[in-house]
Amino acid sequence: MAPVATRQPPRLADRSPGITGAEIVAELVPPPQFDHASFESYRPDPDFPSQAAAVEKLHEFAAVWRAQRPGGFFSRSRKPKLELPGIYLDGGFGVGKTHLLAALWHAAPGRKYFGTFMEYTALVGALGFADAVKQLQGARLICIDEFELDDPGDTMMMTRLLGALIETGTRVAATSNTPPNSLGEGRFAASDFLREIQAMSSNFETVRIDGLDYRRRDTTGRAVKVEPEDLERMVSVMLERGEHVTQDDFGALMRHLGTVHPSKYIKIISGVDVIAIDDVFLLTNQTDALHLVAFIDRVYDAEIPIIASGLPLNEVFDAEMLAGGYRKKYQRSQSRMVALTTGELPPHAE
């Protein structure tokens, strides 16, 4: 009797999705884990007073909208303090910047958008600068998570976009990311951001948030790896249960990510319950490493667990990368890899 053919899981490397401007706009909302993020559900670390101070600053920033609502819990007899149209949350990874940015988004009335720096630059690429401005004009609030300083051209394009929106009354909130060749923490990133946007800097108030990466507070700090035979068994069991699991060789997946614009990574993982990766190895090419960072960000936002064999995922970046200008970006990704492989995904990710 002939053996029964084993069902093969689909591969992410076989997915080459397209994405339109309309689809990007439709996705400009906080990730699912922040559906109910609020200032009240943010838990400041008492060892770092700047976290509670940041919540108060954002309350003040949102006071303009609250004052416009007649009556209700947030109504106040005094006029709100005059605020700058932009606020910039500066701090390390895992201190709650994204949670607070999403909480501000939820507090804003009317039309509003929330996305990563990469998603907004992809929108401009899909629609063109003028049409992107038309699409976003009239929004009460634009939230930009992880404002990138990696590409000077993209950075200056985004500052032009924000300038055009602020001129028409849109308010802007952003969180920080590490600029290239910066080994400094916190305020160094903030000063570089403000310098890059030049004349725009007077529109932004910088709010520093200190603290520890709370994703590491309850984890061992190392991504879980499984033996190859165990990975195969786990994938087979999940397929039998009807779960949507994909399985890719790490090298093939990395080559594929290099052929797809990072704005499309979210569609690559659409509908997937679990991602299995075979034979993870050390990366020595920085372009590959940055593609992996962008991919892990999308997987983390989608809360898709990863099972992997080979090198523990959080050890894929070589020593030169971890000592270079993208150090904080790699460290944030390592933290997320630990969470994705240990099942320690928090209810509010950052």
Results as ranks from 00 to 15, higher is better:
D151V: 11
H59D: 07
I277N: 05
M337W: 07
A223M: 09
K328F: 10
R195H: 11
S75I: 11
I269A: 02
G96E: 13
G242S: 09
L183Y: 03
L127H: 04
E167L: 02
D318T: 09
S333P: 08
I19Q: 00
M234S: 14
A108K: 01
T159A: 09
T259A: 13
Y42M: 06
S182W: 04
Q247S: 08
R140L: 01
R160M: 10
D131H: 11
D90Q: 13
L101Y: 02
R215A: 13
V235N: 03
L136Y: 06
A52K: 12
G125M: 10
E56M: 08
W65L: 03
M1R: 08
L58H: 03
K81Q: 07
A308S: 15
V226C: 07
F129R: 04
R7E: 14
Y42T: 08
Q334Y: 00
K329M: 14
T98P: 06
A139E: 06
A199N: 14
P262T: 09
T98K: 00
L101S: 01
V338C: 06
G125F: 09
T259K: 13
E240R: 15
E23H: 01
A174W: 00
R43K: 10
D45E: 12
E350I: 15
D318N: 14
I275N: 03
Q247C: 09
C143H: 00
N181A: 08
D150E: 15
P31S: 10
S38R: 06
E350R: 13
S263I: 10
P346V: 13
A190Y: 00
G211R: 06
P346N: 05
A107W: 08
A294Y: 11
V237F: 05
S263H: 08
T116V: 10
G324R: 04
A252H: 01
V25K: 02
A190F: 01
V64R: 07
D278A: 02
F61K: 00
L313A: 02
G128R: 07
I296E: 13
L311W: 02
T175E: 14
N177R: 00
D35L: 10
P30Q: 01
C143F: 06
S182L: 11
P32W: 06
I307K: 13
H348D: 13
T98V: 11
I209D: 06
R7Y: 10
S50H: 07
G92V: 10
L89K: 02
Q137Y: 08
A26N: 02
L290K: 04
S176N: 08
K79G: 03
D273P: 07
H59L: 05
V237G: 04
R160D: 15
P9F: 02
M158W: 02
D273E: 12
R15D: 08
D90F: 03
L127S: 03
Y120T: 11
G186N: 11
G153D: 11
T155C: 14
L239P: 03
D90E: 12
L162R: 00
A199I: 09
